[in-house]
Simulated scan of single mutants.
Amino acid sequence: IASRAAYRGDSPAHWHYAASKSGMVAMTKTIARAYAKDGILAFAICPGFTMTGMAEEYLSSRGGEKLLAEIPLGRVAMPDEVGEMARWCALDAPAAMTGAVLDVNGASYVR
């Protein structure tokens, strides 16, 4: 699980978070290229804000209306949506999709 920050970046106070998530995406692509021949598949999921306890606190204490206004869907992702993506990648994703990066952010960042 990476983050939309891998592509969108983050605030100057959290540059290290964005850099680590970019590294996870590059690692996923490298694993896919190196080991697909061995039947090892690799996928990265890049959620945006997800309604965890931390996000709920952030939304309520730091002007969540502004954050939600930046999400065309009008809400943050739910944990079960991210979990379903992970389940699908683990069990049902086609092998030819190895190396894919999947976004789950309500169109708050579109590549």
Rank of each mutant, 00 (worst) to 15 (best):
V101Y: 11
A18G: 11
S108W: 10
T52G: 09
P79E: 04
V25T: 04
V76H: 13
G106T: 12
G48I: 00
A107E: 13
G53R: 15
T52I: 01
H16M: 03
H16S: 02
A5K: 13
D103N: 00
Y17Q: 02
Y7M: 11
Y35E: 05
S20P: 09
A36M: 08
E84V: 12
K21N: 10
W15Y: 00
E81K: 02
A36P: 05
V104S: 07
A69E: 01
S3W: 11
F49P: 07
D38H: 09
D103S: 15
R8G: 14
S108G: 15
A18S: 12
R62K: 15
F49T: 10
A6Q: 14
A86N: 01
D38F: 15
G64C: 14
A32W: 03
A44D: 00
L67T: 12
Y109K: 12
P94R: 06
I31L: 01
I40E: 04
I31K: 10
V104W: 06
M54W: 13
G99D: 01
G99Y: 09
S20G: 14
M27Q: 07
L91R: 07
G9M: 08
A32F: 08
T98N: 02
I31N: 15
G9N: 00
S22I: 03
C46L: 03
A5V: 05
M24Q: 09
T98A: 11
S108R: 10
C46G: 06
T50A: 10
E70M: 15
M78Y: 15
D92M: 06
V76I: 08
S61W: 14
A26G: 05
M54R: 10
A107I: 06
S108T: 08
I40W: 05
L41P: 04
A42R: 13
L91P: 13
Y17R: 07
G74K: 08
F49V: 08
E81W: 08
D38V: 13
D92Y: 10
E56V: 10
G106P: 11
A34G: 08
A26V: 02
L59S: 00
T52S: 10
P12S: 11
R33C: 05
M78H: 04
A100K: 13
L73N: 06
Y7H: 12
I1E: 15
P94H: 12
L73D: 14
L102E: 02
R4T: 12
R75S: 01
R75F: 00
A77F: 01
A90P: 04
T30P: 05
